[in-house]
Amino acid sequence: MTLPALFVSHGAPTLVIDDVPAHDFLKTLPSLLPEPPRAILMISAHWETPVPSVSTVEYPDTIHDFGGFPEALYRLQYPAPGAPALAARVVELLAVAGISAATSASRGLDHGAWVPLMLAWPDAKIPVTQLAVQTQLGAVHHYALGRALAPLRDEGVLIIGSGSFTHDLSEFRKTRLQMNSPEPGWVTGFADWMDDAILGGRTDDLLDYRRLAPEAVHNHPTEEHLLPLHVALGAGGQGRRIHRSTTFGILRMDAYAFE
């Protein structure tokens, strides 16, 4: 059975303990799948490399790649097994598409990976590996990555792009934002445009979102948190929204299934 490719918004590291709708939604991910995945390929905004890189680690560390958060977060571990065979398959598929890829024998799971995984599969039994993003190469490149990796969906592999539907963290320095702060128009306008383009199958517009979408650069001053969506789009095709919520007013936590 073919699995969808997913895009989820992982928000702040505290999402794993916060009482917010996105936390509750991520717990339901397994129920949205036609069958349990045999392995998971995570594309996280928090691993950036010059060329596509995939982790071959057999027992990936839990990386606490953040500072200034509650001490409880730093004690959390996600001891899922790695997926070196899947990593090799990723390299193979990318090569077929003419995309050279590197491997890492040391990369663990950053919070863009383990936070949503801990909520969805807390037993940490499904093998998982990560594929890095290349922020400087933009949306078209990441869509091509997804297209190359699409066969994995027929091989029992769940492809998850983990980022944020909107992500201008500079707003935290400008405004005293609370968990339930109202959503400003520049966030709503961008998110509504993206949703309409996704549901309408407007792939060309999504690849050119930075020029076409309202307030695109405001919502994504840098692209790393949206590019995982383009990987999922390439791997899956037509999208449908499976979650919508907002935290701190400016972080849209939307999620999509592409199938």
Score class of each variant (00 low, 15 high):
P36A: 15
L251C: 11
F165Q: 13
E183M: 15
G138F: 12
V54T: 04
A87H: 04
V187F: 06
G201C: 10
D61V: 12
A80N: 11
W114R: 10
V133N: 10
Q134D: 11
V8H: 07
A105M: 07
A97E: 06
K27F: 02
P34W: 02
I198M: 12
Y256S: 04
I159Q: 08
G98D: 02
A39P: 04
D154Q: 14
I198E: 04
D195T: 15
F66G: 12
T129K: 08
A197F: 07
L158M: 06
G237Q: 08
D110N: 12
T129E: 06
D123F: 01
I242H: 00
L137A: 15
P34R: 08
D195P: 00
V54S: 09
L94T: 01
A72V: 12
R176H: 14
L206D: 05
A216N: 06
A39V: 04
L76P: 03
E223M: 14
H220C: 06
R75C: 05
P116Y: 11
D19G: 08
R241V: 11
G163M: 10
Q130D: 08
R147M: 07
R147E: 12
G108T: 03
P214N: 01
I40G: 07
P127C: 09
E48G: 03
A45C: 09
E92Q: 13
A12S: 15
F66W: 03
T56L: 15
G239P: 01
E171G: 00
H142T: 01
L199E: 10
P21I: 00
L117N: 09
V16W: 07
V115E: 10
L229R: 00
T247R: 03
G234W: 07
K125L: 14
L158F: 11
Y143S: 01
D254A: 07
M1Q: 05
I160T: 01
P21C: 07
D254F: 10
R38G: 14
T56W: 09
L227S: 10
V16M: 08
L29C: 06
Q134M: 13
H64T: 12
G67D: 12
T188E: 13
S164K: 00
L41K: 02
V217H: 06
G112I: 00
S104R: 02
A113I: 04
A197T: 00
D18C: 06
D61M: 14
H220K: 07
L15N: 13
W47R: 07
R241Y: 02
E58A: 15
W193S: 07
V115M: 13
W121P: 01
F69H: 13
M179R: 13
